[in-house]
Amino acid sequence: MRTDAEIPFYFGPAGDLFGMYHAPAPPARRALLMCPPLGQDLIRCHRLYRQLAQALAAQGLAVLRFDYYGTGDSAGGSAEVDWERCVADAGVASNELRARAGIDRVVAFGARLGGSVALAAAERARFAEVIAWDPVLDGGDYVSALDDLQVALRDDTERFTRPRSDADIAEQWLGFDIGDHLRRQLSALHLHAANVPTLVLDSLPAAPASRWERIVSPRGAVASITPPTPWNDLRRLESAILSQPLIQAVSGRLKETA
């Protein structure tokens, strides 16, 4: 691995977004923007995102990983995360990638809410394609699941010596401050098909594949990945999510469309 080919930097109009650019050895012919998920999923996926970026850079793609405002190494506090800002940041990042790689055609990839951001930003950011791994389509369900996990966390005697109070866990989701604004935004999230080819990589526990229909048709496909990914498992909250099948699926797709 060439360390000089992975460049950490800050970018954006205010220089407040963190990015890691993976430059391919030969001149790039295509580019991939990696939209991260939010909250603890971002931390759990960091290693996998890096592995995927390195695999794709070796395949000849220019890749940009980045953090939205209020997440990761980007400026802003966790309570300042804003859905519209995340979508806008994906657009800023895509233009940064175009400028660095000298390529106009950008494919976007994202896991969970990162996939949702990529879909929501697809037209504005002019993505040529979106590859979404278990994207969140209905924010209401997602909010309910996180609320339930937060309540379970309060009583988790594996983590705490004694149960915590409601006040201790209020206005947070699994380690992160959650503003009322983001909660409302996510509760109202209801994604529709983006006007670009869309590949959904499905590794959610058994459930009807038809759930993806409204975002993949008519210009898209669904591919299953096994084993299921334990996104919402409190016992694995601090375990990295690693998936060789995911890396193979994404790199295979990008080879197909090369």
Binding site: H46, G175, E238
Partner: peptide, 12 residues
């Protein structure tokens, strides 16, 4: 094994 931002962004 958490990257430099720390658990739940503690280091940030």
């Amino acid at each position: 094994l958490v990257h430099r931002i720390g658990p739940f962004r503690l280091h940030v």
